[in-house]
Nucleic acid binder design. Sequence first.
DNA 1: AAGTGGTCTAGACCACGTA
DNA 2: ACGTGGTCTAGACCACTTT
Lengths: 260, 260
Amino acid sequence: MQDNDPLRSAATAPGVSRYGRIAAQLQRKIVDGEWQPGSAIPAESTLAAEFGIALGTIRQAIAVLVQEGLLERVQGKGTFVRNGLTGASMMRFFRFRADTAAPGSFATGIEPGLAIPRSEILSCRAARLDKSMAALFGLDAGARGLAISRRRWLDDKPRLIESIWLPLPRCEPLQRLPRAEWGDLLYPLLASQCGITIHRAVDEVTFRTLDADEASLLDLPDGHPCALVTRRAYDLQGHCAEYRLTRGDAYAFRYQADIR
Amino acid sequence: MQDNDPLRSAATAPGVSRYGRIAAQLQRKIVDGEWQPGSAIPAESTLAAEFGIALGTIRQAIAVLVQEGLLERVQGKGTFVRNGLTGASMMRFFRFRADTAAPGSFATGIEPGLAIPRSEILSCRAARLDKSMAALFGLDAGARGLAISRRRWLDDKPRLIESIWLPLPRCEPLQRLPRAEWGDLLYPLLASQCGITIHRAVDEVTFRTLDADEASLLDLPDGHPCALVTRRAYDLQGHCAEYRLTRGDAYAFRYQADIR
DNA sequence: AAGTGGTCTAGACCACGTA
DNA sequence: ACGTGGTCTAGACCACTTT
């Protein structure tokens, strides 16, 4: 659990060091799509020769991007451009399934394997974005976006309701996509249909109560407490490409943070 | 925001690399108290000569401990043993003071400077620990601990109530300490009175409701929703040295997590 | 000026994965 | 056997802090 400034998105100022400048150049290749997510980048020795620098320096540059989560090294195989966000499931905030350890007790720390909840699209329509949301997406005031309402099911029970906003025209392909082809996960869809790789997200959790409509969608009583997760997701260029509100039963919420 | 296994505490298996073994030796010096928190360790060149290894290798070993949060490098000055946990305030989970940005809106990401809440000790007594808590502290069944009840004030309003358990006899000095000398922060007290440096903590957040006693302590109605933070704090040796339950108004809860 | 960590080089050899 | 990243060396010079 680490707080970060959502504004400082892409291109962290690398100072003036050589490996910093090289790292920025490598990042450019990823952002521009020259190096595709999932594919291997050239070998360290190759890159060192190309840039005309020592092996240790290119290693240091790569280390920067590994730290940033853009690259991944695999011993003996190569260095790869990471695919989109993993482990960003909203389920990590909740414990819906019966757990061995009662909350507050001395848990084992073992995660109950995160399942992918089934997705039910309730509505999906284009709409004018309000001023602040347009600004978030880097669009002009009055720009349009895609507003999606979604319900997530787990073990045949409704667990989460989500309101998702996506920028238009970037996400226009989703508007024409038949409901049957949506599947359960949004980010793979954004990648395949819109060419958007979600690479980072900032989640904010607060506590609320459900209104009558929300409650009925979750089979909970009106006014029932809920955890509200507000997500801003960013693409490789550092532009916000998703704003999402997720609500789930507050009493199923649990989150673990490690501080040092 | 990063999940971690609370069990894998100290001495991460360093494989068989030389820098890994060196890192373990340096860690031993810190854990054993040979290198005191806050003080500088010998220069890299000195250490390299002492261990009979190259500069790059000792640098790599130090980098491991920096990553672990045990050491801190300062350009031009030296490498220092980090003092206890900073930024572990429970206030980071709450937003009690009026904030410019309404929750759910597009916040600026600027933190409203974390204040230290005033501490009021409600009770402090030795008691037998239950079996699981004794095990958590690495003590035999039936061992005793210190049970502390504390209320935290901010802006002359009661904001948090805390139940803290500490292992005996390690924390015995606190039992004899006059209330007036406790101050507002526990960890500096553990360091100065008991020689315990809290170096890592694992917090788990859930939502509950307050019972009548708890509610009255916080000037809230019976049954009011609260955020419950369960903390396990660990010393340099990796032993758990504190178990804490913190409760505060759920409507003041907010937490931000960065995923990549 | 002296001491510290930060950057950079040009090699060498090792451990791992694949063919 | 070959190519990959991982480790290690022995230097050099730079940037920052303190004396």
